[in-house]
């Protein structure tokens, strides 16, 4: 069925909307439903009734996406995972107000983590804000809000980044990272830059984008969008993480860096205007990798013979070090070393 003609699949952005009965009258639910007139709506008791069914096909579901509107009842904040970079922040959390992503990256851990390819949107953002505000009473918080999705890519639809920005404006002790592969330049016009909202662009060479990051904007589009944001005063982080191996990876990543050089030069900007950069090669937990390999049997990235180091699959140590060191050296010639983050807690 995977190779059924594309027109067999119900292909609009979302072909069906599942809605938890409890949040039917929530203003954000009503707002979202107005945007999708004429799409079948199915009432459900709990999002897990759809999202957690057994034996779902993530790949097929990505070709005919459903939107699930739900209310989060608990777990508004999670502590940052060891494989994630904390950028020197002691109180590192992430939150998940949307589950799943509209992009289709072959190596994405979400495929290993979630049983379904459908998109879950939790409409009760106010409860997230309350949970963060409570945590802020104890200590400053560094919060990644776009790990289990790509909120910037969904901004036009959900407006979540704008709401987080409004919240962060009132809480200087809160630093929010919005990680994205999108190239949504319109978001720069909808918000004011804040020092405590960091837009983190995951960048990959065009060859990797075409090979493994399906439905994502091109490398050039991402670079342009990131640089435009910087030009408008937004704090922008460039993430060369995950770096992915391909036969001529040095040349590919070298071209990517040159693309950024050119884009900055065109706007008469320098690397000093980049808030910081992160470097890391692909890594994923053993459990997620097992599922990912089953879901992506023909993917070069997932089928790479990684080494299992303490339950985390990663490139063989020599290759890992070679790739990361090369990138760090390249970046050191462009940006101060203090702005380069490459250690994660493994």
């Amino acid at each position: 069925m995977r190779s059924l003609k594309p027109d067999y699949f119900d292909a609009p952005v979302f072909s069906h909307i599942y809605i938890e009965k409890e949040i039917l009258s929530h203003p954000r639910t009503r707002q979202l439903l107005e945007r999708f007139p004429g799409i079948p709506r199915i009432e459900i008791d709990h999002y897990k009734d759809v999202f957690c069914r057994q034996k779902q096909d993530y790949g097929l579901q990505q070709r005919s996406r459903k939107l699930i509107l739900a209310g989060r009842r608990e777990h508004f904040l999670y502590e940052g995972a060891p494989v994630c970079q904390d950028f020197g922040n002691r109180h590192f959390y992430y939150s998940s107000c949307v589950m799943n992503c509209i992009y289709d990256c072959e190596y994405c851990y979400l495929k290993g983590m979630y049983p379904s390819g459908h998109l879950v949107v939790f409409v009760n953002l106010e409860d997230y804000f309350r949970a963060v505000a409570q945590k802020l009473r104890e200590h400053p918080v560094y919060l990644c809000v776009s790990y289990d999705s790509d909120l910037a890519a969904l901004e036009k639809l959900l407006g979540t980044c704008e709401l987080w920005t409004e919240f962060a404006a009132k809480h200087p002790d809160l630093t929010i990272e919005i990680r994205t592969k999108s190239a949504n330049g319109a978001m720069w016009d909808r918000q004011e830059p804040l020092p405590n909202i960091v837009y983190a662009f995951t960048l990959s060479p065009q060859r990797i984008v075409e090979q493994s990051e399906h439905r994502t904007p091109s490398a050039q589009a991402r670079v342009s969008c990131a640089v435009e944001g910087m030009a408008k005063g937004f704090p922008v982080r460039l993430c060369f993480d995950p770096m992915l191996y391909c036969a001529d990876w040095q040349q590919e990543y070298g071209s990517l860096l040159q693309q950024i050089d050119r884009e900055l030069e065109e706007r008469q900007m320098t690397w000093e205007q980049v808030r910081d950069v992160s470097v890391g090669t692909f890594r994923i937990s053993k459990e997620y990798m097992r599922i990912l390999r089953a879901k992506e049997p023909d993917s070069l990235v997932t089928q790479f013979p990684y080494e299992n180091v303490d339950g985390v699959y990663q490139y063989p140590p020599k290759l890992k070090q070679q790739m990361e060191q090369w990138m760090i050296e390249e970046l050191s010639g462009r940006i101060s070393k203090e702005c380069i983050y490459h250690e994660y807690r493994t």
């Binding site: 699949f9 119900d10 069906h16 199915i42 009734d49 069914r53 779902q56 070709r63 005919s64 459903k66």
Partner: peptide, 21 residues
Amino acid sequence: CNKLIEEPTGCTFYPDILYRH
């Protein structure tokens, strides 16, 4: 059918409607 409700148990099931029809 996009939702199957089993009356005796009250259980509900959701087949995935992935194809144009």
